[in-house]
């Protein structure tokens, strides 16, 4: 017990020490830095709104990834799936008249689009033996090219010089903002994202398909011998993963921007990989993990503004060290638990 405490201490002090070194180097006190980080991401409603908006994107993507990771797969296509969902949702919203029927189509299109991408990855994996890292990476690029093409050649907004589409009809602005400030990005889909995480957790832990997914993730051969069709599980996992990423379109297009902008994503799909891994692929843990990364994202801007020395680049170093520190502490907790287990048996 004492030894574990002592090691936690070393890990924590080292982590804090590392942050302090950085902060001293930047002529700031570490306490001040943490303060700014938290203040500028959670303090005012407008800031909190952006943070929650980031977290929403991260939650949808990361939960999807977690499902796939638990099946033992490593697809990195969340970014492309998100973009494709957003693009198709916007395209459909622009092309259809604002009727109730169109509402349904608009809601569903993005989800279908992203799921198709996920199923393509599954097809390549199951029928062609192609590793999902490659196929999902290629699809990311292909989607980016397609989106560029669609926007610049067909859907470019006439009232703006940005590479973006026109604004979709207000009938399609389905998800109201959470805060009253105008232009506040956070919207009702934040709660949907939390729900999605809980649902994913429930699915993985308490349902049979979820159990099978995890079984395949733990050991393909054992699962196969128990009669689970690994192929079917892969299709399921990749499909769900892509579907969840697609919900990001509800957040981005229907809940906030109401148009497709090239470059809208702050690399949500890639950050989500880190979010999911830090949360150990547990959808419930993804909720705080997403918040953690969202705070880092939003706080980066704040650090740049509030300090003289800390710039956008320096923030990257701070983020890296913070994540490492968290990982080390997490690892220490694992070790302590394992030792406690060993001592009990």
């Amino acid at each position: 017990m004492k030894r574990a405490f002592y090691r936690y201490g070393i890990a924590a002090i080292t982590g804090i020490g590392a942050i302090s070194v950085l902060c001293l180097f930047a002529h700031e006190s570490p306490w001040h830095v943490v303060q700014i980080l938290l203040n500028t991401s959670l303090g005012e409603p407008e800031d909190l709104s952006v943070t929650l908006f980031y977290a929403t994107h991260l939650m949808f993507c990361a939960t999807g990834l977690a499902v796939a990771f638990q099946a033992g797969l490593f697809p990195i296509g969340a970014e492309g799936q998100l973009s494709f969902a957003c693009l198709t949702t916007t395209m459909v919203a622009i092309m259809l008249p604002p009727t109730y029927f169109s509402l349904v189509i608009v809601l569903v299109t993005g989800l279908l689009a992203s799921t198709v991408l996920g199923l393509i990855v599954a097809y390549f994996k199951c029928k062609k033996g192609a590793h999902e890292v490659i196929t999902s990476m290629m699809l990311n690029f292909i989607v980016a090219a397609f989106a560029n093409y669609m926007v610049s050649h067909h859907f470019q907004s006439h009232s703006s010089q940005d590479p973006e589409t026109a604004i979709i009809h207000s009938r399609f602005w389905l998800f109201p903002s959470i805060f009253h400030a105008e232009g506040s990005p956070a919207n009702v889909t934040f709660f949907l994202a939390v729900l999605a995480c809980v649902a994913a957790w429930y699915f993985l832990e308490k349902t049979r398909p979820g159990f099978e997914i995890r079984a395949v993730g733990k050991s393909k051969s054992v699962a196969q011998n128990s009669g689970i069709s690994v192929e079917r599980i892969y299709v399921l996992a990749l499909g769900i993963s892509a579907l969840l990423a697609g919900f990001g379109a509800w957040n981005q297009i229907l809940g906030y921007a109401h148009k497709y902008q090239i470059g809208f994503s702050a690399d949500y799909g890639f950050l989500a990989i880190a979010v999911a891994l830090v949360a150990r692929n547990n959808p419930l843990a993804i909720i705080p993990s997403s918040l953690f990364f969202a705070i880092l994202l939003k706080g980066a801007t704040g650090l740049d503004i509030e300090t003289d020395f800390i710039t956008r680049d320096f923030v990257k170093i701070i983020q890296a060290v913070l994540i490492l520190m968290f990982l080390v502490l997490q690892k220490q907790r694992d070790k302590s638990r394992a030792e406690a287990e060993a001592r009990r048996t």
């Binding site: 880190a274 990257k316 170093i317 983020q319 890296a320 060290v321 994540i323």
Partner: peptide
């Protein structure tokens, strides 16, 4: 991932 971030920042 963290390594990439670190180098980009340093």
């Amino acid at each position: 991932l963290v390594f990439n971030l670190l180098i980009a920042g340093v």
